[in-house]
Design a protein around this nucleic acid. Structure first.
Lengths: 239, 239
DNA sequence: CGGCCTCTTGAACCTAATCAAGACCTGTGG
DNA sequence: CCACAGGTCTTGATTAGGTTCAAGAGGCCG
């Protein structure tokens, strides 16, 4: 257990914010204690179970959500139903596109998630009077763009084996916002979702996972719980 | 020929800026005539021939480039040489990632290009004293993120035939910044580059282009010059 | 226990990659 | 002017990686 991080005016902060990761690496770090206190009056903490839809493609955006815990799956579908997962969001990412009238992706809780919801108008007013906040959001957007482009390489140029290894490595390095790479974790996505993320079928994902297991690169319990004894051996399989 | 668009204080503007597309749809629209005049003292217009490298992956960024004419290819490579084109930039996009020390992609002139180069420090100072400018850049970044995610669907879930149709449609709808969709154009990319953009081989690209031609969806002269008699017929082939 | 879901594994098939040859364009030099 | 070299692009034949189709195993909950 880590003690709650202490910094100036910690005791003046709203209780919910005191231990919140978003204040450190996320967007709330751009706010003064006064702004945080004012904002906290308008936010509410919500929980969604795995599988719940948070935001439909082309649906109006009513607010923004700071991811506190869990994983969110962003996806797009073609008319005939083919689906592609275009991104995952972990704590302390911000869900919802700034100033957009409607979403350009569908968002679904991949695992159980906790969000800190901010009403659309409150967030946008705060951004207007606080350029540093827009700057923080800009940095997150640039990071998302980098991640999307990295994933384009995975989708366009890697083999099925490399794709699955890349996915496992992505999860291992993002699932815990406080630590970096982690050697044991639960997969937040089903095989079907992993397939939709990697541009593969369920069967191919399953076969490649079995192969990594047979080769001793990973261990698996109950389909979802993964251990990586030597993360470097996983990394070299990413291509 | 279109007349130069006229607006307030047009005559006060630097000559180079007067007919520049970037003032209308691009980032320079966020600047006052005074700021534009001041900025214009530090910019220089440069030309690059097709194939020239503008920026290497992990190379230090020395400035920003407003695309005035032509197409820029952004790409990433794996250690073993496999390449993926992760984006194209057209006028009036801004080349170069704001505040980053080094680039995360390689940039190459796909066709002959003209750029309006702004020194790194000049642009960053301007951004710091002008939040509206950062806002404009934010909007472009969000657009790039949308495009990257759209392309992830193409890479992950479309067939070779749909990929090639999607590429041709992308070019038809972006090559001319002033108009929207265009029915005749020169391909700014070689078959090899198209393959690297679509996650296909040269041969597969060539076969699918030939098929579209045989089906009467497109006409081709000299490998590079394309006509699309009915753009709706192309669009339905995008999947 | 039985139904339902997710996941795994096997066999057949198919799309796109690979290997290979030749066509077409361009520029150079005799 | 033609011959030839060096690109890029096209087309054909073969191969292979991943999909599809099919069956069964394992976990969860009534």
């Amino acid at each position: 257990m880590q003690p709650v991080r202490n910094d100036i005016h910690n005791s003046d902060l709203p209780i919910l914010c005191q231990s919140c990761e978003s204040r450190h690496q996320g967007i709330c770090g751009a706010l003064s204690p006064e702004q945080l206190t004012q904002l906290a009056r308008q936010t509410r903490r919500v929980h969604h179970a795995a599988g719940e839809e948070l935001l439909g493609d082309a649906m109006p955006i009513t607010g923004y959500g700071n991811v506190l815990r869990g994983v969110i799956k962003l996806s797009k579908v073609l008319e005939d139903g083919r689906q592609q997962v275009v991104g995952l969001q972990f704590a302390p990412d911000l869900l919802g596109r700034l100033f957009a009238k409607e979403s350009r992706v569908a968002a679904e809780a991949a695992s159980d998630v906790d969000l800190c919801m901010v009403p659309k108008a409150a967030m946008e007013n705060l951004v207007r009077e606080n350029p540093a906040l827009e700057h923080r959001i800009m940095l997150q957007t640039l990071r998302e763009l980098d991640e999307a482009r990295d994933w384009m390489v995975t989708l366009g140029r890697k083999t099925a084996a490399e794709k699955v290894a890349s996915f496992l490595y992505l999860i291992a390095s993002h699932i815990d916002p406080a630590q970096g790479e982690v050697t044991t974790f639960d997969l937040p996505l089903s095989r079907a979702d992993i397939g939709d993320f990697l541009g593969l079928t369920i069967e191919t994902v399953s076969r490649q996972v079995s192969k990594l297991k047979a080769d001793g690169v990973i261990e698996i319990e109950n389909y979802r719980h993964v251990s990586v004894p030597d993360i470097a051996r996983l990394r070299v399989r990413c291509g």
